[in-house]
Amino acid sequence: MKGFEHLEEEIREWQENGVFRPLTELESDQESTVKIGGRKLIQLSSNNYLGLTTHPRLKEAALEAINVYGAGTGSVRTIAGTFSMHEAFEKKLADFKHTEAALVFQSGFTANVGVLGTILTDEDVVISDALNHASIIDGIRLTKAGRRIYQHADMDDLKKALEETQTARRRLVVTDGVFSMDGDVAPLPDIVELCEQYDAIVMVDDAHASGVMGKNGRGTVDHFGLHGRVHIQVGTLSKAIGVLGGYVAGPQVLRDYLIHRARPFLFSTSHPPAVTAACSEAIDVLLEEPELIDRLWENTRFFKDGLTRLGFNTGKSGTPITPVIVGNDALAMKLSDELIEEGVYAQGIVFPTVPRNQARVRTIVTAAHSKKELEQALEAFGRAGQKLGII
């Protein structure tokens, strides 16, 4: 159709550079292995950290909710779409996170956008880590607040930013708890100490720490023992929790304000009963089956050690997210393609998702992987890496 020539030209450039990829269609459920193109592959690209997407308790809870409440809710939360189960789940989530209140959004992305785009004005300043998630970046773009980006995990630069912005009504410092592309953990105790020193609000996006770090998967705030010192916790219900959605946990006044002013919350239909019931059951699983998290970390250590022994550059990851950094965009995609031939699905990640010359294949092991599957995956990485001259 005429009028889209500029888009066609850009796509042709992606194709020539070897970075254009169609969507991958899974023909099975999201387990440690998946069926793609009729083949069974070891899955190393999902966020299903604990295997909860197919946990029998979650499936049973979802089916029961459909039978009782139906397939959908038929309204936004502020009109007629708040069921008693929504309120009960948010109370359970707040108790789990050791906060006064919690509020569920349609996704982790809308949770970040909803908070940052709502509570800040042109009298405020938001200070953000350079490697924060795209949803944080977009949330900042929606506010008229001043902004300052500090170098990744650089506390000297954060201190400088706090010193330079003391005339603002309020400063909000926002960071990922676990950074999604590198797998490193934010120096949260240092961030909190600086913010207390300079009277700034702390906001942590624990998307990749929820269900993974802290006691029973409570996140980085619990991991570092910082309850009561972090003002806003954002997380996701679609990664380790295994279902769908995002949440904000913090003081009751924040929940009340967001209900009345956060546009993603105000103008989106509430989660269907099956989603809410499954998310609620997932919290119970975290509390009652902590061995899942233990298994996740055991598998993580095994796989990281194996990649290191093979000679791959895995960066500074300290979590189940383990990047295999190769640098060149096309080479990262070739490595991904070779791994598929070897029976492993691990997606290549290139610019603009990661900085230029930092292209990688990002891997995430789960509690559902067997040692045999991880051994097979390591053998595949070894063969593919040698073939491409990476190791």
Rank of each mutant, 00 (worst) to 15 (best):
E5H: 02
H6Y: 10
E16G: 00
N17C: 01
P22Q: 02
E27G: 07
S28M: 08
T33A: 04
R39G: 07
R39M: 06
L41C: 03
I42N: 03
I42H: 00
I42G: 03
N48E: 11
L52I: 03
T54N: 07
A62H: 13
A65K: 14
V68K: 15
G70W: 11
G72P: 00
S75G: 12
S75P: 06
V76C: 02
R77K: 03
S84A: 14
M85E: 15
F89P: 04
F96L: 13
S107G: 06
G108C: 05
T110R: 01
G114V: 03
V115L: 07
G117W: 00
S128I: 15
N132K: 00
A134D: 12
S135P: 09
I140L: 01
K144V: 02
R147C: 13
Y150V: 13
H152P: 10
A153P: 00
E164D: 06
Q166D: 08
A168H: 03
R169W: 10
F179V: 15
M181F: 07
D182G: 14
D184Y: 11
V192H: 05
E196D: 09
Y198F: 15
I201V: 15
V202W: 11
V202G: 12
H208G: 07
G214H: 11
K215S: 15
N216L: 06
G219K: 03
V221E: 11
H223P: 08
H227S: 14
G228C: 10
R229H: 10
H231N: 14
T236V: 12
L237R: 13
K239G: 08
K239A: 15
I241D: 14
G246D: 12
G250C: 12
P251I: 01
P251D: 10
V253I: 05
L254I: 05
R263V: 01
T269P: 00
S270D: 10
S270E: 14
P272Q: 12
A274W: 12
A277F: 13
S280P: 06
I293T: 13
D294I: 00
L296T: 05
N299H: 10
R301H: 14
F303P: 02
D305R: 05
G306T: 06
G306M: 04
N313E: 07
K316E: 15
V324E: 05
V326D: 11
V326R: 11
G327I: 12
L331T: 12
M333N: 14
L339E: 08
Q347G: 06
Q347F: 00
V354G: 10
Q358L: 08
V361Q: 06
R362H: 04
E373S: 04
L374P: 06
Q376T: 04
G389Y: 11
I390S: 08
